[in-house]
Simulated assay, not measured.
Amino acid sequence: MLLDWITVILLIGIGLLLIVVELVFVPGTTVVGILGFVLTAIGIWIGYAALGTEVGHIILAATVVTGAAAFIYSFQSDSWNYFALKDQNRSHVNEEHQHALEVGAVGKTVSALRPQGTAIFADRHHEVQTNGEFVSPNRPVRIIKLNQNKIIVEEAS
């Protein structure tokens, strides 16, 4: 009888812990959350099978109340904020040198442009793109359009 209680408490405890881990560390429906739900359900089922219907009802009610209380408390206590990402990356490609280039400037590709890649203009590497053409590495390219942070190029003759 004591072993049945220990089994039920461990299965439900580990199951609820895995569900919390699913919510905090591994968002989305993954194996961790499903395994937690299955372990909790098996713990409740063993409670019904080994300890009787009345005790099974009590175990089920206690599990639901405990799970709901932990979930509600965790949101009210702002404990989720310790795991939340608060920093944002607001930078853009070529942001620091966006006015140094002009339409018509000629440079050389570093990588293949398919249609995006890297080219050198005025001894600086820039992310560039073509209008859909393929340009091999180490080929001369000319800037045909500057659109905010996009540098549109074509192969120079």
Rank of each mutant, 00 (worst) to 15 (best):
Gln88Glu: 12
Val31Arg: 01
Val20Gly: 00
Val135Ile: 11
Tyr73Trp: 00
Asp123Gln: 11
Glu102Leu: 12
Tyr73Leu: 12
Val24Ala: 11
Ile6Cys: 03
Ala112Phe: 02
Ile120Asp: 10
Thr118Trp: 12
Val26Gln: 10
Gln76Asp: 01
Gly132Thr: 07
Ala112Glu: 12
Glu95Arg: 10
Val65Arg: 00
Asp78Ser: 11
Val103Phe: 07
Ala119Tyr: 06
His92Trp: 13
Ala69Glu: 04
Leu10Lys: 05
Leu113Cys: 06
Ser79Gln: 11
Val21Ala: 06
Asn131Cys: 01
Asn147Cys: 13
Ile12Cys: 03
Glu127Cys: 00
Leu51Pro: 03
Gly52Tyr: 06
Glu54Ile: 14
Arg114Val: 12
Asp4Trp: 10
Val65His: 02
Leu11Met: 06
Glu22Arg: 10
Leu2Tyr: 14
Ala61Cys: 10
Glu127Asn: 03
Ile42Met: 05
Asp87Tyr: 10
Ile12Glu: 01
Gly67Pro: 06
Ala70Pro: 02
Leu2Glu: 15
Thr53Cys: 04
Gly47Trp: 01
Gly47Gln: 00
Val38Cys: 04
Val24Trp: 08
Ala50Pro: 07
Ser136Lys: 13
Val20Lys: 00
Ser74Val: 06
Thr40Glu: 05
Gly132His: 08
Leu39Met: 12
Ile59His: 08
Ser91Phe: 10
Leu101Phe: 07
Ser91Val: 12
Val65Gln: 01
Val103Glu: 10
Glu154Val: 09
Thr29Leu: 15
Val21Gln: 02
Phe121Gly: 03
Asn138Phe: 13
Thr130Ser: 02
His97Cys: 09
Asp123Glu: 11
Ser157Leu: 03
Thr7Glu: 10
Ala41Phe: 05
Asp87Arg: 11
Ile143His: 04
Asn94Phe: 07
Gly47Tyr: 02
Phe121Asn: 08
Trp80Tyr: 13
Ala70Arg: 00
Val93Met: 13
Glu96Ser: 14
Pro137Asn: 11
Gly56Cys: 04
Phe121Leu: 13
Leu23Glu: 00
Leu60Tyr: 04
Thr130Leu: 02
Leu23Trp: 00
Trp45Met: 12
Pro140Met: 14
Gln148Glu: 15
Asn131Arg: 00
Gly43Thr: 08
Glu22Pro: 07
Glu154Trp: 00
Arg124Ile: 15
His99Phe: 12
Lys145His: 15
Phe83Ile: 05
His97Ala: 14
Thr7Ile: 12
Pro27Tyr: 01
His99Gln: 15
Ile42Lys: 06
Thr53Gln: 08
Val20His: 06
Gln116Trp: 14
Val103Leu: 04
Ser74Leu: 05
Val93Ser: 07
Phe121Thr: 09
Val64Gly: 03
Val38Gln: 07
Leu23Pro: 00
Asp4Ala: 10
Ile151Lys: 07
Ile72Val: 08
Glu155Asn: 02
Asp123Val: 09
Gly107Thr: 02
Ile58Pro: 06
His126Ser: 13
Ile151Phe: 06
Val93Tyr: 08
Asn131Met: 05
Leu113Ser: 07
Ile59Leu: 07
Trp5Met: 12
Leu51Phe: 05
Val128Cys: 06
Thr53Leu: 08
Pro140Tyr: 13
Tyr82Val: 14
Gly43Cys: 02
Glu127Pro: 03
Glu154His: 03
Leu16Thr: 03
Gln76Ile: 13
Ile151Tyr: 02
Gln88Trp: 10
Gly33His: 03
Arg114Thr: 11
Ser77Gln: 09
Lys145Arg: 15
Leu11Ile: 01
